[in-house]
């Protein structure tokens, strides 16, 4: 495979190119998924240091599990399935160690100075409040909203990676959305602000 054009390669071909032990191909796969997996973990664990620890575990598990990927599901579904398992493990360990989370005002990128500083500050504030609203939801709710709203996975894909029935996914997304709405209102975020 032409090593210079990996950016254009599909996830599946990239995954195949990683076998056996192609570190260059894996580095590309890593960078393709690093931020997505990390953001998912941040949504679930609410702790940047812990999310990064779990990210390392997820990536190593992907590397070790490359040969076990059967191609029956999408690569992204497979990867988020691994991330889900590792997140559950990580939360269990963190709970037993009674670790604290990251302060919520510290999880956002600093505001870039754009054309309209007032609007930028406003958007930043809304993002901050929205992240706080997400953090107040139950783990199940914020996880499924991340999958459905951010990753835009289909109901069957979410069902597969969470090992729950498709109908449970549909109703859980519905209730999670109602909770997010309440939580946003509680944070003072109105529909006009969004």
């Amino acid at each position: 495979m032409d090593t210079t054009n990996w950016q254009d390669v599909t996830d599946l071909d990239l995954l195949k190119a990683c076998i056996p032990d192609n570190e260059d191909a894996f580095a590309v796969l890593y960078q393709r998924y690093e931020k997505r997996v990390f953001q998912y973990l941040m949504t679930v664990v609410n702790d940047a240091a812990l999310a990064e620890e779990i990210l390392v575990e997820v990536m190593l598990a992907i590397w070790k599990g490359l040969k076990t990927f059967q191609g029956q599901s999408k690569v992204s579904t497979w990867i988020f399935g691994i991330a889900h398992h590792k997140a559950v493990d990580g939360i269990r360990k963190a709970t037993s160690q009674q670790r604290g989370g990251t302060p919520l005002d510290d999880i956002l990128e600093s505001v870039e100075s754009g054309h309209n500083p007032l609007q930028d500050a406003h958007r930043h504030r809304t993002a901050e409040l929205t992240n706080q609203a997400i953090a107040t939801l139950s783990i199940d709710h914020r996880e499924i909203l991340h999958m459905a709203f951010f990753e835009e996975l289909s109901y069957p894909e979410i069902a597969e990676l969470l090992h729950i029935p498709v109908n449970t996914v549909k109703t859980r997304v519905y209730y999670a959305k109602q909770q997010l709405k309440k939580s946003l209102q509680h944070q003072g975020v109105t529909e006009e602000m969004l």
Binding site: Y30, E34, A51, M59, I107, H146, F149, F150, V189
Partner: peptide, 26 residues
Amino acid sequence: TAMQAALKTAIHQRKGPSPAAFAKVM
């Protein structure tokens, strides 16, 4: 639609992982 847009914007504005994670894995 409004909730989804808000959630996407909020998550997109979060910081990413540090480069140390990549170095550690590789």
